[in-house]
């Protein structure tokens, strides 16, 4: 028993990196000529990598905060809707002539508000996290749809208004090393959260809240505040994801975040975070996100797009089951 534990312990810590390496190697050896997303035959060709990263910016920026929330034993199903709403708000601000920085800041502020509403429902109203965030999933989505005029599907140029030039450069044009700012923001946020998890009070208290809530409370930790703060953090990251997505697509689509909650759960579970709380690392979720994005985009080269839902669903079940089997603690029947 103990020996196999040591082996699984090692696998648990590092398998995720191996998976990414193997996956990239496989994709690199495949012939990608037919697929328009990839300009040249090799997956590792620079433009292809840039493409994958800028498409992935939303999940990359969300996965860190989402990990910390799940480590604390809570969940946010509204993250996709919050992302959509932020995308719409950001596009509206831009379309109506608000300059980049204020528009960016205001959208992030919206994210703070959306996260705070979740935190309020869960911490103060004591509504079960799943239900509370299902309520706001519907609420945020509804608001996003209402903000978009009837008869149009998204906020975009038209009717005398035109998106400013800077709007899509955030998510598309190379800012540094040819990667757009959205990717750099995702990387910066992830690095910041890695540090917060390792050295920050919030990171430690999140683990304590998820690992042993009674012990955390007995130690004088205000777990309610921790959870509230984490919801706000997820709200901010959803706003950043919305900005990245709307900028990449050059429009504010009220459905652009649909399904993001599933991808986020999948990525975090894949990274080895236990849904019972306490356990989990930001950097592993980040790698998990890269794997999922490589997999889904790479898959498009071999199989048609309509297989994606099935693969993600199956991956979610598989990740949940493996996670459970690996992290199961021994005990009574």
């Amino acid at each position: 028993m103990t020996k196999s534990f040591a082996v699984t312990g090692f696998l648990k810590d590092y398998y995720i990196y191996l998976v990414l390496i193997v996956l990239v190697a496989l994709l690199a050896s495949a012939n990608l000529d037919q697929f328009p997303l990839f300009e040249r035959g090799n997956f590792l060709y620079k433009r292809n990598i840039i493409n994958i990263l800028r498409v992935s910016a939303p999940i990359l920026v969300i996965c860190g905060a989402f990990t910390l929330l799940m480590v604390s034993g809570y969940i946010d199903l509204s993250v996709g809707s919050a992302m959509s709403l932020s995308a719409v708000v950001y596009a509206m601000l831009a379309l109506n002539g608000v300059p980049f920085l204020p528009a960016f800041a205001l959208t992030v502020l919206v994210g703070v508000l959306l996260g705070a509403i979740n935190g309020f429902l869960v911490v103060r109203m004591r509504i079960t996290p799943v239900i509370a965030t299902l309520i706001t999933l519907s609420l945020y989505k509804g608001i996003a749809l209402l903000l978009v005029e009837d008869g149009t599907s998204a906020i975009k140029s038209g009717g005398g208004l035109k998106m400013p030039g800077w709007f899509n450069s955030y998510g598309r044009s190379g800012a540094l090393l040819d990667l757009p700012a959205s990717v750099w923001v995702a990387i910066a946020v992830t690095l910041a959260l890695i540090v917060i998890q390792k050295r920050g009070v919030l990171g430690k208290y999140a683990a304590a809240t998820g690992g042993n809530p009674t012990a955390a409370k007995l130690s004088g930790i205000k777990t309610g505040r921790v959870v509230f703060g984490l919801y706000v953090l997820v709200g901010i990251s959803a706003a950043l994801a919305g900005i990245a997505r709307s900028s990449f697509m050059s429009l504010g689509d009220p459905l652009s975040g649909d399904g993001m909650e599933l991808t986020a759960i999948l990525v975090v579970l894949l990274g080895g975070t236990a849904f019972s709380g306490g356990e989990g690392k930001v950097q592993r979720s980040f790698i998990g996100a890269l794997i999922i994005m490589c997999l889904t985009i790479g898959m498009l080269t071999i199989v048609p797009a309509y297989t994606q839902t099935l693969v993600i669903g199956a991956a979610l079940l598989l990740a949940a089951a493996t996670n459970h089997l690996v992290s199961r603690k021994g005990g009574r029947k």
Partner: peptide, 15 residues
């Protein structure tokens, strides 16, 4: 009342 997921030192200073 210890948190399994934290290190011994982290537990000792918790709170």
């Amino acid at each position: 009342h210890v948190v399994d997921e934290l290190t011994v030192r982290e537990n000792l200073t918790l709170g």
